Amino acid sequence: MNVLRSLFKWRKSLLLVPMALAALASAPVFAQQVVIIQQAPPPMRMEVMPGPRSGYAWDQGHWRWEGRGYVWLPGHWQPVRYGAHWRPGHWQARGPNWFWVEGHWVR
């Protein structure tokens, strides 16, 4: 009887450990990196938007900060989330600093 009780106690502890690790491992998924730059991005490049593509929304190209300077990322297709529209990412000035606002779907 004592053996069964000790196994039952260990079973509870063994279940809590993986659950705690899973909770800790999933936390960074929701964190977004904040990019703050004191140098304004270059002017947007003109891109030719390809013809419509069923089930996808066009995400225009943009400048991304790469530690020492801006690098151009060309536009690409985003799979559509029905009932929502795509709001593209953009640089936003706040005082002397520039912040990147990530593109996202809006309902």
Rank of each mutant, 00 (worst) to 15 (best):
G55Q: 05
H76Y: 13
Q60C: 08
V3R: 14
R81M: 07
W98A: 09
H62C: 04
A57P: 00
Y56W: 12
H76P: 02
L16A: 13
W10A: 12
R53K: 12
P74A: 15
L4Q: 13
E47R: 07
K9M: 11
H62R: 14
F99D: 09
G51I: 01
W72I: 00
P96K: 11
M49V: 04
Q78D: 01
Y70Q: 06
P96F: 06
V80T: 12
F8W: 10
V48G: 07
P28D: 14
R107P: 06
E47I: 02
A25D: 09
P28I: 06
P18D: 13
F99H: 15
R11C: 12
V101W: 08
V17K: 04
R107V: 03
G67N: 08
N97M: 10
G61L: 02
R53C: 01
W10V: 03
L21I: 07
F99S: 03
H90N: 03
M19D: 04
F8D: 11
Q92T: 00
M1H: 11
P52W: 11
V34I: 11
L24E: 05
P96I: 04
V48L: 15
G51M: 09
Q60W: 10
H90S: 05
W72A: 04
H76W: 10
R11A: 14
P41S: 08
G103W: 09
Q32E: 11
F8R: 11
G61R: 09
P50K: 11
P74W: 13
A27F: 15
N97K: 07
V80Y: 12
Q60T: 09
R68D: 13
V101R: 10
P79I: 03
H85N: 00
Q92Y: 02
S6G: 01
E47H: 06
A27D: 13
W91Q: 05
R45M: 12
G61W: 08
G75Y: 06
W86I: 02
V48W: 15
V71E: 07
Y56E: 12
F30W: 12
V71Y: 07
V106T: 13
L4E: 11
S13D: 06
M1D: 10
